[in-house]
Write a protein that binds this DNA or RNA. Sequence first.
DNA 1: GACAAAACAGTAACCGGTTACATTGGATAT
DNA 2: ATATCCAATGTAACCGGTTACTGTTTTGTC
Lengths: 335, 335
Amino acid sequence: MSTILDVCKLAGVSKATVSRVINGTGQVKESTRDNVFSAMKELGYRPNRLAQALATNKTHTVGLVVSDFDGIHFGLLLKQAAASAELANKQLIVTDGHNDPAYEYEVILQLEAQCDAIVLYSRTLTDDHIQLLHKQLTIPIVVINRDLPEQLFHSVSFQQENAVTLMMNHLLTNGHKDIACITGHMNNPTGIARLNGYKNALKSASIPFQKSLLKNGHYDMKSGYQACQSLLKEKSNFTAIIAFNDCMALGALRALTEAGINVPEQVSIIGIDDDPVSEFFTPRLTTVKLPIVEMTKQAVELAITLCDESKPTHSYQYQGELIQRESVMPVKLKA
Amino acid sequence: MSTILDVCKLAGVSKATVSRVINGTGQVKESTRDNVFSAMKELGYRPNRLAQALATNKTHTVGLVVSDFDGIHFGLLLKQAAASAELANKQLIVTDGHNDPAYEYEVILQLEAQCDAIVLYSRTLTDDHIQLLHKQLTIPIVVINRDLPEQLFHSVSFQQENAVTLMMNHLLTNGHKDIACITGHMNNPTGIARLNGYKNALKSASIPFQKSLLKNGHYDMKSGYQACQSLLKEKSNFTAIIAFNDCMALGALRALTEAGINVPEQVSIIGIDDDPVSEFFTPRLTTVKLPIVEMTKQAVELAITLCDESKPTHSYQYQGELIQRESVMPVKLKA
DNA sequence: GACAAAACAGTAACCGGTTACATTGGATAT
DNA sequence: ATATCCAATGTAACCGGTTACTGTTTTGTC
């Protein structure tokens, strides 16, 4: 790999001049510029980004950190992040935290020198950790899917509890009363908020909460499948299932199908996310859309803005939207 | 962010000594080391990776470049890559090429200074481009899913044509003769090799190739769905569909279901990949497994090895494996 | 033709580390 | 006591760029 010195020699000028040509700064005679350009071309020279970053303290890079690469919505999120970054001519580098909070914390700190801003979609870090990070970092960080009342950091968040309320209301207005619930990890705010949504909706409808209708999942199809199977094994009495994401809803759908139970005739199912696969299952899954693409766009664009100018921290709120398809029907019509 | 100089001041030693402590190199008196460590701790100091990389010409990072973030097998690939990288204590940075060969080429070149090795899973670059890259780069590159007879670069590849042969033989031995085919992009070796597999299998079975049974897709569910719809609209006569990945097979399955056609009773479907979602559809999709996890592991581990020692280029070959599930049945039993 | 201003290019310090080499001082051997 | 060696640390150059500052030409004006 040739360096700026090679270009200097070939073009017969100093480092400063080459640098000026590279960056289009200062005054350079046209003939000199042409010389330098052709020298660069001849050598296949391209500036070393590390050296540039070190010298200017600007990396033109935004870092995206996710807790785990197989996480929710991963494809859509990354694709949008990449698109937004390119639009602003920034490099995007993506890292995961191996689902380990300590590792993830370390990764973010390491990224500090390599990025101008960080976008974080964390499932494992606590709010406290994130606040600590925010204080410790000298570069801006935008947090997706976390929301603290005090607005101590930039965040793009989703109204989790409200979304579950939407789901529950859809089931309730369809006459369902015995509603099983497949949750996600309960060690983070998302899970807790969603569970509150479930419980509060029951309370509002004066339906007692039954622990036996609650099963834990891990946001993947298999755990939804297993959760549903254990629901069936325990002969629980339910006419509908609400799952804390589409994957688990789809896993549950499969379990029901295998057990010879018709959806939605015998049991209704509703998910959340609006995963791209959801409308290809039979029946097409009714769900509440989590606008991950829009949220990612917002987050990355905000992060990029913050590279150049600081702004007061603000929380951008997004809401769920019910997408009615075929997996829910009124309970009275059931056999 | 504190620098090494801050640590020097606080610990009352020179940069060289601090550096020795950081890296555990050279001789440092224990009491000095302790001083330096506590100074580092007090300041929350962590070495600037850019500066380290610049000085040592070692980044301890491997770059993973994919053509597009929503690509095939994306989640599994990334997850495994991240796991393998961490095991070797390397940072993994992931970038996509926005599905644009020129951009992807540029991205890879840019990455040269930021990584010790690169793993490439490209859908858009031609073999020629990859060879050019290989020649131009001063760091090793491992290419997944490309295979050239001359073995000019390190590659981890999959026997595409053979895999399709497996799929076709499964259908043929089940008595299918009218086999529709939903292809992927035909501008790269993968698509071409798979199509050859299809055509050659037909030839071996003395079945004439019918252009009307061939539809183009883009490896996503929607295009599989649309391809199948156009197949149906044209009233093509087929008893089985082979799709160039599971997603499209699943999209086709949906189209058939909507059209009231039973799978596999009326039409059999087979895919390729063994996508995690495939076994949750009804019927569970029969497919040929593409061992992307193993391949990724191999590729990343190889790349990491090549950071430290060079090895002769070699092509690691992987094969497909038929996974029989429920979407294929003998043709004679059909209504 | 003289002189100021503008254009152009080079020098050297700096970014935050690493490392070859030099220096110091204490322990050991003679 | 002196020579020798080695552990411990510092000095300074270097990685590949950027940029403030300086010096030299050009250009323009009168």
